[in-house]
């Protein structure tokens, strides 16, 4: 008894493609057919595929800008507060607020806070770490990180119809179309 027979509700359809060229045109067709809850998976970022899918640009730059500015402002404030108020001490005849001498650490903390933000925002926006995913039930999907290209359309999608969706995927040059159990 396969997983699918135990649980007849399916999560979606998975289609396999052999090269970047066919998945590129396939994505354009799936996008134009009006699907929303779908995705493509590739071993490397295929140039322009996000446009063929109609994805919006990432918001990461804005998040990094905001957090980076906060980190930067905080560190400059903290340096002047620690040196000038918390334990005021004149070193080398410099004024308590000695901006040029604060620049290196101010700069390093700006970089560190921005990079940490970019790093974590990347995984959080992608919903990772996500230890399991319905596509991992497919044996064929193991090649997604090697040399095969996949499109998956979720059954939750309002336009999803098992027969029509399967026909659409097959017509786009898929070499394999599988049902993914949920």
């Amino acid at each position: 008894m396969t997983a699918l027979e135990k649980n007849p509700r399916i999560w979606g359809l998975l289609a396999q493609y052999e090269n970047p060229s066919t998945i590129f045109t396939a994505c354009e067709k799936v996008r134009d057919a009006g699907y929303e809850k779908w995705d493509s998976c590739t071993p490397f970022p295929v140039h322009g595929l996000e446009k063929a899918m109609g994805c919006k640009p990432s918001k990461i730059p804005w998040i990094v800008l905001c957090v980076g500015l906060c980190g930067s402002t905080f560190m400059l404030w903290f340096e002047s507060f620690a040196m000038g108020n918390l334990y005021p001490m004149v070193v080398g005849g410099k004024p308590l607020f000695s901006l040029p001498a604060f620049v290196p650490i101010w700069y390093e903390i700006t970089v560190l806070s921005s990079c940490l933000t970019a790093f974590f925002a990347n995984w959080i926006l992608s919903g990772l770490p996500q230890p399991n995913h319905p596509a991992f039930n497919s044996k064929a999907f193991e090649r997604v990180t090697d040399d095969k290209f996949f499109i998956m359309i979720e059954s939750e999608d309002p336009k999803f119809d098992i027969e029509q969706t399967r026909a659409l995927l097959q017509s786009t040059g898929a070499t394999l179309v599988e049902e993914l159990p949920s």
Binding site: C27, D39, S40, C41, T42, P43, F44, P45, V46, L49, E50, M53, C55, W123, S126, L128, P129, Q130, P131, N132, H133, A135, F136, F141, V144, T145
Partner: peptide, 8 residues
């Protein structure tokens, strides 16, 4: 981290 090469 559960990476699956999703274009998104």
């Amino acid at each position: 981290l559960g990476w699956r090469g999703s274009t998104r």
